[in-house]
Amino acid sequence: MTAPKKDFDFARPKTIEQLYNLVQECQHEGRQFIFSAGGTDIMPNLKSEILSPDIVISLTGLRALNNIEKQGDHIIIGALTSLSELCSNNNIQKYLPALARAAHKVASPQIRNRATIGGNIMVENRCSYINQSPINRESHSPCFKIGGDVCHLVKSAKRGDDILCQARFVSDTAPLLLLQNSTVNIIGPAGSKEIKLADLYLNDGIESKSLMHGEIITHIKVEITENSLSHYEKLTIRNALDFPSLGVAALRRGNGDISVALTGLNTRPGVFHAKLENHETSDDMIVDICRKANDFTVTYQQDFFPRGYRKNMISVFIRRAINKILEGAKS
């Protein structure tokens, strides 16, 4: 699959103004466009014909969106900051070390040099059917995600169901950002707005993000939580390149409350909280979070690991992440 089957045009506007002139032009001429940041997720999808736009509009010319800044109690991360810049940034290492760890767990060194934080929180949901070569896909009927009439994971799914597509949410960085009450700044043809990161994520594997076509994320605003401790644990077969079979971010606030966010286990991320009682982190708090997490999880046979193993690992990884935090709290 050397080159994408369908030729596309390519443009790299240098300013937001140029970007939206181009978007307007495309809409006027009826040309299908997609945005690309690092492109490390888009390019495989173009080559395997999951995406077939007329034009790829690269955002990498918008240099103003590549920065990290501390403003009071917040860290503002430009959406085009590469994951390797994020990992090595002093403010991130000082105030959000678990985010640096999560970003470091994404893909490979070469991909982290290119892939951006905006792209990682927007990463397309994945499934063991759709993310295969076109040759493999040809041997099945097309699924809902590419306009067909079947889901190969849930054969009983039919049009009209609440959740049509079970493609998994797989961002490594989103769980921790969710625990830090992050918000995202969005601009689009209709102007700019700020929404909670949690509101970016929807329930269905096809329409998995609330970003409208033509909108882009410009910044992510992350709250610095006083006296908090956090950690990220990821289950994968290999140390490099794998999307999370499951990922757990955990945060202990200064008041002792614990929150956990999950990735890889549903069409969207999940966030769960347990309040501190009697001044000590009790096993009941952890059991309660594990129970909520298991209720939330929708695992199918959709990964290298067997479904049952992955389900069993949910509680194991939640405990592992929380224990790591509690060790940190003691020292």
Partner: peptide, 15 residues
């Protein structure tokens, strides 16, 4: 690319 290793198969040349 500008002193950082990247994957040339995932990059349009115009990038």
């Amino acid at each position: 690319i500008d002193d950082k290793p990247m994957l040339s198969c995932l990059l349009p040349a115009l990038e």
